[in-house]
Amino acid sequence: MMLHYILMALSALLSISVVYLAIVERDLIKAAIFSAVQSALYAFLYYLLMAPDIFLTYIPVGVGLYTALILILIKKTERYEGE
């Protein structure tokens, strides 16, 4: 039981730092990949919080489909964020 809470704390802290990197990053493709890493960590959190149904939705939507959609959008517009 204690291991659950330690893993939860670790993945929550990691996801916070990844969120910070995703916001600050100028290269939007890197930002999209940071966002995908954050989604994976959040999915892991949902699994540890005993919500496996949300976990199974979060993995394909948050990591696969959403990231692909953002990458398609970046390809059609600009890769680097201006000042």
Binding site: D53, L56, T57, P60, G64
Partner: peptide, 13 residues
């Protein structure tokens, strides 16, 4: 755990 939407979203990848 799982169901229609989860399976469909996984297959859509």
């Amino acid at each position: 755990p799982g169901g229609g939407f989860q399976g469909g979203a996984t297959i859509a990848v």
